[in-house]
Amino acid sequence: MVRLITHNLLACHAKDCNTNNFPLEFKDVQLEIREADFNPDFLKGFMPKIEWKALVDTARQLGDTSLPLEQPEMLDDEFLKNLHHVLLEIHVEEGSMTCPNCKHVYPISNGIPNMLLAEHEIG
């Protein structure tokens, strides 16, 4: 059940991998769409935490082009509904995430990313 809300917070945590380690790149994904309760207050509160470019790029890569390239100043209902869908309703069920820097691959199975590191990768 990895969704873009957590993907957008997640950087690589392998040893000495500190720059250019975000966002992890999805590969060979299987998606599932599941409806979630729409909560505009939550979304507005969450906006400052979002890395906008990473979110838009990743959403587009997964086939959703509803978000504008620039984070809008006016948060109208249509925008919030699109944001809601992108952050909370697209579930990546299978596939993997690759670190753009060290190329570590985090496999995703059953919706659960495997974040375990090998001994030599622990910081």
Binding site: V2, T6, E51, I112
Partner: peptide, 18 residues
């Protein structure tokens, strides 16, 4: 919630202030 298979003794990779 979103679930992760992770050993907390290896540390987290979440961005600051997540």
């Amino acid at each position: 919630g979103d679930l992760f298979l992770q050993d907390i003794g290896q540390g987290f990779g979440f961005r600051p202030g997540s």
